[in-house]
Each structure stands twice: as C-alpha cells, then as structure tokens.
Amino acid sequence: MSALSLGRAQLVAVSAAIAALGGGAVLVALTIPPDAAGAVVGARSFPVAVGLVLLSCGLLLLLEAWRTPWECEATDPEAPPLDLVPLAILAAGMLVNVLLIKAAGFIVASTLMFAFTARAFGARRLWLSLLIGFVLAFATYYGFARMLDLRIGGGLIEDLF
C-alpha cells in the first residue's frame, strides 16, 4: 500500500498548503487599513472572511486527508506514476515563449512553443511541428492579430511585412 501512503502524504501537503494560503490571506488582510471615508463596511472585512474560509477548508481537508484520503489520481493505486518528462518539455516550451515573445515576437516564440508542446505529446518529426506551428502562428498573426488590431507587438517576422 505504498501508493496509498504516498498519495496520502501528497493530500496532507496540499491541504496544509490551502490552510497556509488561508492563514496568510488573513494576516495580509489585517494589514489593509480600515476606510477613512466613513464607510459602514470597509475594505478589510471581506478579505478576512475569505481568508478564514480558506483556512478552515484547509484544516478540515487536512483532517480528511489524514483519516480517509479522498479518491483522486494521486491516491488511485491503479493510476500510473506521475510522468514528468512531457511536463518538463511543456514547461520548457512555455518558458521559451515567455522569454522570447517580447524580443523575437509572437510568431517566433509561439512557433517554438508549439514545437515543444507537440514533442511533449509525442510528435516525432520536429520539422513538421515547426512548420505547422509556424503556419498557424503566421496565420493567426496576420489573420487575427493584425486584423483585430490586437496589441501583440512586433517581432523578427512581424516587422518584415
């Protein structure tokens, strides 16, 4: 039953994180100054309430995770272990997009992200994904972004035409 205990540990961690988020929210909310303008209910009340809701949810979930972990992928003994390789490839693609979109422009950055994503989902032919990604990004840029006057900015290819 190691899968279950590992799953339980994850659920405990998640519940604790929610409780911590709620607690943190309450602490931050308490630093919001009460209104000066004499409003009956100020800017502080709702944030504190929301923080308390999250905090109590987190604590109750902690209890549940400890006693009877709920069913989900992480606790399902049948479920395969977490496959990190495609996730890492996807994350790399997103990172490339974030880093390049301002400097190299939408078409270049998004074509690369498309290729990374396709690779993460098992596409073998890199040239094909690059080609499809480029055509899609190009068509989106000129078909939509330019036409709708979106503020997607210029770039290496965008500035050519």
């Binding site: 998004s110 989902f121 997607i152």
Partner: peptide, 15 residues
Amino acid sequence: PTPYLYGGILLFATV
C-alpha cells in the same frame, strides 16, 4: 492529432 491540437490550444491561449 493530439500533439498539434494542444500545440494550437496553447498558441491561441497566448493570443
């Protein structure tokens, strides 16, 4: 095909 479908979804999400 899944690889291109999700590549496209992420691309549109960027737009």
